Simulated assay, not measured.
Amino acid sequence: MVDTHPAQRVGILADSQNLYHSAQSRYSRNIDYSALLEEAVRERSLVRAIAYVIRADSPEEESFFEALRDIGFEAKIKDIKTFADGSKKADWDVGMSLDAVTLANHVDTVVLCTGDGDFARLCSHLRHEGVRVEAIGLGSSTADELVDAVDDFVDIDEHEDRFLL
């Protein structure tokens, strides 16, 4: 791990769907977003923290969105799409990538909270632009190409008592 310092500006992008499903399938537990934010910032200067969430009309989701805001995340919310065949889709990959590229001019480090290998190309681009890229995810369900593409990876599986509720 490269030393961090208080002057480093950090942007945090949390793929809430990926984190939720990974934590549920492996542990039947939820992510502690306070611990996630604390680890991602690590005494550095937080520029922006965004959690990308899906509205699926479940009763507890509005309180979850509010809790994210209370912790210090900006919640970007997308409605789930249901297609004629009954299939459902909702993901934030393009939105997260665009926000990361936009943030790159304003931060020294981007922390991606996800295990999604689709972000590996984004990581390569950001690093080419001179931005440090870190990821936090459940190692058991994080794509190798993502781990290989970042400067530092924090494995939630190795610290489950800290990061899981």
Rank of each mutant, 00 (worst) to 15 (best):
S58K: 13
N105E: 13
V110I: 15
G95H: 01
A40P: 06
F73M: 07
I136A: 01
L37N: 10
G95L: 06
A23Y: 07
H106D: 14
A14V: 14
F65M: 10
V94S: 09
I71K: 09
H21C: 03
A90W: 00
I136H: 02
I80E: 09
R44L: 05
L68M: 14
R127S: 06
D79H: 12
F83P: 07
L103T: 05
L112S: 01
F83V: 05
W92A: 09
D99S: 08
G130Y: 04
P59Y: 11
R26E: 15
R26T: 14
S63T: 14
A104F: 06
A23L: 06
G115Q: 00
L103S: 10
L36D: 07
E61W: 06
R69N: 14
F64M: 09
L37H: 07
T114R: 02
H125R: 15
V53I: 12
E74W: 05
V131N: 01
N105Q: 07
G139T: 09
W92N: 12
V107R: 00
M96C: 06
S45F: 10
A104W: 05
H128K: 12
S45N: 11
D108H: 11
G139L: 03
E129P: 01
R29W: 10
A49F: 06
I31C: 11
R132P: 00
G117D: 01
F73G: 08
G130K: 04
S45V: 04
L46Q: 12
H128Q: 12
D91H: 08
E134L: 08
Q24Y: 13
L103H: 01
R121T: 11
R127H: 03
K81A: 10
D93Y: 08
M96T: 06
S58L: 12
F65Y: 14
A14E: 05
S58N: 14
I77N: 08
R29F: 10
K78A: 14
H106L: 12
V101A: 12
D108N: 14
A100Y: 03
Y52V: 11
I77W: 11
G139E: 10
V53D: 06
D79I: 00
Y52W: 15
E43I: 04
T142L: 00
H106F: 08
T114Y: 01
T114M: 03
S25I: 14
L19S: 11
L126T: 05
S87R: 14
D116P: 05
G117F: 07
S87V: 03
D118R: 02
N18I: 07
L36A: 11
A35C: 11
E61D: 12
R29D: 08
I50S: 13
